[in-house]
């Protein structure tokens, strides 16, 4: 099994720790994983802003980088959803890319079928459900639907020794990042982020985690501005901890 590691552009630039943890975690689990060096971005920032028509060469580059792998794994629900739903290019007429791309926790659960982890993280942790991972990739059940409970990232976190997952008042409300929404609709975006953060703080979180660094970056920005000691960590960093 050859796995290509896709690291979203902003993770590469701002949160290399999340990318390193993802790589190390996959290696620990015995996966043959490679990071193709010429990757940039999935094109979502443009597409979500209404410029999907400009993403053609971005798509082709992505396909060129990853066409040779059995699976593509990325530590981001949002980028993976974009690739699944919107990435199509001349280089991949059968759209095979869309079917072999996985968000990290989805890959660990559905492909590797991980049942236990050698990880230790003795802290109170709030799990943020990033919308694209949850409602787009169905990583966890959604509170709007009348359907059985499950959570792929939640189950994995529960395999970590010492972790205490805190409850939330609104367990799957959007944090307000929303790509360019975070600046185009600054007031609402920040208010949504403040409300999410407050929910985690109210329940005593020491760390806020999730499958998308973008949501976490937004909440981190708010936490830091508030002078809070609470930290954000990508889920890979907790699953790889200790």
């Amino acid at each position: 099994m050859k796995v290509g590691l896709f690291i979203p552009c902003y993770v590469d630039q701002f949160y290399p720790g999340a990318a390193i943890a993802t790589l190390q975690l996959l290696e620990k689990l015995g996966v043959d994983v490679t990071y193709p060096p010429n990757q940039t971005c999935c094109g979502q920032p443009m597409a979500n802003s209404g410029f999907e028509h400009l993403t053609g060469s971005c798509n082709d580059l992505f396909i060129k980088n990853f066409a040779g792998f059995d699976y593509i794994v990325a530590p981001s629900g949002s980028c993976v959803l974009h690739i699944k739903e919107h990435l199509h290019g001349d280089a991949d007429p059968q759209a095979t890319i869309n079917h072999k791309v996985y968000e990290l926790t989805e890959f660990l659960t559905d492909v590797l079928k991980v049942k236990s982890l050698q990880a230790k993280f003795p802290h109170k942790v709030g799990m943020h459900q990033s919308c694209h991972g949850q409602r787009g990739l169905h990583l966890s059940q959604m509170t709007e639907l009348v359907a059985p409970e499950y959570s792929k990232p939640g189950s994995l976190l529960n395999m970590v020794e010492g972790i205490e997952l805190i409850p939330l008042n609104r367990k799957d409300e959007c944090c307000g990042f929303g790509g360019t929404f975070c600046v185009a609709e600054e007031a609402v975006s920040v208010k949504m982020g403040k409300d999410r953060v407050a929910d985690h703080l109210e329940h005593g979180a020491e760390y806020i985690t999730g499958v998308d660094m973008s949501c976490l970056m937004h909440m981190e920005g708010i936490l830091n501005r508030q002078g809070s000691k609470v930290k954000v960590l990508h889920i890979a960093e907790i699953l790889n901890a200790g």
Binding site: I7, V11, D12, Q13, F14, Y15, P16, G17, A19, I20, L23, Y35, P37, C182, V183, A184, E186, V190, G193, M217, H218, E220, G221, I222, N224, R225
Partner: peptide
């Protein structure tokens, strides 16, 4: 003037990008 910064801090830039780290370590 940057709407991100008005009410949010920016992520602290790391020493090196993941790409650079990967080149050195893998």
């Amino acid at each position: 003037f940057n709407p991100w910064f008005k009410q949010r801090d920016m992520p602290e830039p790391p020493e090196q990008s993941f790409g650079e780290w990967y080149n050195e370590n893998r």
